[in-house]
């Protein structure tokens, strides 16, 4: 392919995409293989899927359902499992930030939805992550009403704590941690949320209640337990660390001990 000139003129690739097709939550799914060409390295992974879908539509076939929105790695919508990796092989990025330069001409790419009971498949690669919202609704907040709180600078916060809280708050709720975990555990997500507030003075009044209630909901949603394998940390596009899970464990045990009612 192409000549050896200085400007790579023809650097396009032909790929085999093996995608999970599933018509609905109850239906059985299976892999379907498609061949596409003219994929260039500058394309993002989702743009490659766009190209494939355009082709499928033109051929009268059903395009592959996949969810996405911001396409810049911040909304957390685009989770899929690419060649066994949540968000693909590169660390610290989402699927939409993955570029085709990561792949080689002739590669076969296997794309699947996250597989976790708590994330039912809606169609093809689209999944339902509302379990995360329900967990947040059980305590992922500071209970203040809109009104006239004290002046923002009345509450100095050590820069380091503010930064650590920000590290935790950077979670985009994509669910890659659940997808990557062999136990489908949501501990990294919940740990990040618990940490965000545990590290800030604003979070102190509800510290005990929050962690107990959020963990209770997490368990009720049917997520698995953490066995400290660390796959979540490696898959997390925002590089949320296991420190957050440890902090949640500690917060939880402390809260279980001090709470007054059983």
């Amino acid at each position: 392919m192409g000549n050896h000139g200085t400007i790579q003129k023809d650097h396009s690739m032909t790929l085999n995409v093996q995608a999970w097709r599933q018509a609905g939550p109850q239906q059985k799914g299976k892999f379907e293989t498609y061949k596409i060409d003219n994929i260039i390295p500058e394309m993002s992974f989702l743009e490659m899927l766009d190209v494939l879908n355009q082709k499928l539509i033109k051929e009268g076939l059903d395009p592959i359902s996949f969810d996405h929105d911001c396409r810049e790695g911040i909304c957390g919508t685009c989770l899929m499992v690419i060649n066994g990796d949540a968000h693909g092989p590169e660390r610290g990025i989402t699927t939409c930030q993955l570029h085709m330069r990561t792949f080689k001409d002739g590669d076969t790419i296997v794309i699947e939805p996250a597989r976790a009971k708590s994330f039912p498949i809606i169609k093809d690669l689209s999944i339902d992550r509302s379990a995360f919202d329900r967990i947040v609704s059980k305590g992922g907040y500071v209970s203040i009403n809109t009104g006239n709180p004290q002046d923002a600078n009345a509450l100095p916060i050590a820069k380091e704590n503010a930064e650590l809280a920000m590290d935790a708050a950077a979670c985009i709720g994509c669910g890659a941690c659940v997808a990557a975990c062999k136990n489908a555990s949501a501990m990294l997500f919940v740990g990040a949320k618990v940490s965000h507030f545990a590290l800030l003075p604003q979070g102190q009044p509800e510290r005990t209640e929050r962690v107990l209630n959020m963990v209770e909901q997490m368990d009720a949603e049917g997520f698995g337990n953490c066995t400290n394998t660390g796959a979540c940390e490696a898959a997390c596009p925002k590089e949320i660390t296991l420190e957050n899970i440890a902090r949640m464990n500690r917060e939880f045990m402390k809260a279980s001990l001090v709470k007054r009612k059983c």
Binding site: D85, A86, E90, R115, F119, A184, A231
Partner: peptide, 18 residues
């Protein structure tokens, strides 16, 4: 619990980086 939380395994194992 963990077995019940999964809804299947992936076709490929994750790559070394992850």
């Amino acid at each position: 619990d963990n077995y019940q939380a999964k809804s299947g395994t992936y076709a490929l194992a994750s790559t070394s980086a992850k």
